[in-house]
Design a protein around this nucleic acid. Structure first.
Lengths: 155, 155
DNA sequence: TGACTTCGCATTCGTGTGAATCTATTGTCC
DNA sequence: GGACAATAGATTCACACGAATGCGAAGTCA
């Protein structure tokens, strides 16, 4: 016998989270492909639709994406007429991003599809509010724990 | 009032999963960068270390990555002497991938670091076995639900 | 055995990604 | 007010990613 399996993955939360995400998202990613929308672009659109006008940095934070990735996505989305950029009035460094009506319409469609597919996949799953609550709490706790101790973001 | 926020994201499980994953994994990704290991390569290494010799397709499935991505990762890992490729004896199409001692050593180190960082991040979190169980169950259910109905993997 | 299909993996190639860097603007301190 | 640091965002550039495709090696059926 070549050594007992050490069961790293089965206890490694990031693996389980990623696995669940991928399994759940796969059908929707196919939809995105049909619309020619990259995943990073979808994340930007969803955040914008939900939170309204945002600066690039706020957008990046909410979309869980690095700033350059968001900037690239915005350029593409702007070229397609889905979002608009306006220079900040108070702080001229800032660019405030907002949806165009076309962008909002598309995003609404995508969100509906996303929710539909999610609901279909979860139809047989039981009580998920518990899972959601734990996920939210966990994330919040880690974020606090990571940001707080050193006051400084390490290199 | 510009319409009540529809709270899409707060209820959208893929977003929550991804958010938790990223938050939890961020410190470890910094470690990977230090070692010059891409994320896809880490996933391959972790699976190999845990499951032992595997074919490319099995590896891809376990690593949650597309096959070409795995092949690319393997080429790089082989070039660095971390994995070895042997042609299958029965089926000559297959390539069985195995760890070299150097690869295994590195992976063991990385796994230890991953577990250490995970434990640190989760130190204040309460009972997670519940969360893990729910995640596993959820994933399994979706996978079954997705694969079963049609007997065939759709295009 | 030969034609055809299916499967495993490699390769190509276009594209998204993100670390590092740069520019422009703002805040700060003297 | 001028010099310096800090910040917002754009840009550059190298590289990973993955869809499409190619190719060789089994199965299959006659």
């Amino acid at each position: 016998m070549p050594e007992v399996s050490s069961d790293f993955l089965d206890d490694y939360l990031p693996y389980l989270l990623r696995r669940a995400d991928q399994t759940l998202s796969a059908p929707f990613y196919a939809v995105l492909n049909e619309y020619g929308i990259a995943r990073s672009e979808w994340r930007v659109l969803a955040v914008l639709e939900e939170l309204g006008e945002l600066s690039v940095l706020d957008l990046a934070a909410a979309a869980l994406s690095p700033q350059p990735t968001v900037t690239h996505a915005l350029r593409r989305l702007e070229k397609r007429g889905l979002v608009a950029r306006t220079t900040g009035t108070i702080d001229k460094r800032q660019r405030f991003i907002s949806m165009t009506s076309a962008g909002s319409a598309l995003t609404t469609t995508l969100m509906a599809e996303a929710k539909r597919l999610e609901a279909a996949a979860l139809s047989e799953a039981g009580d998920l509010s518990d899972l959601v609550a734990k996920l939210v709490e966990l994330t919040a706790r880690i974020e606090a724990h990571t940001a707080a101790p050193n006051t400084e973001a390490s290199a």
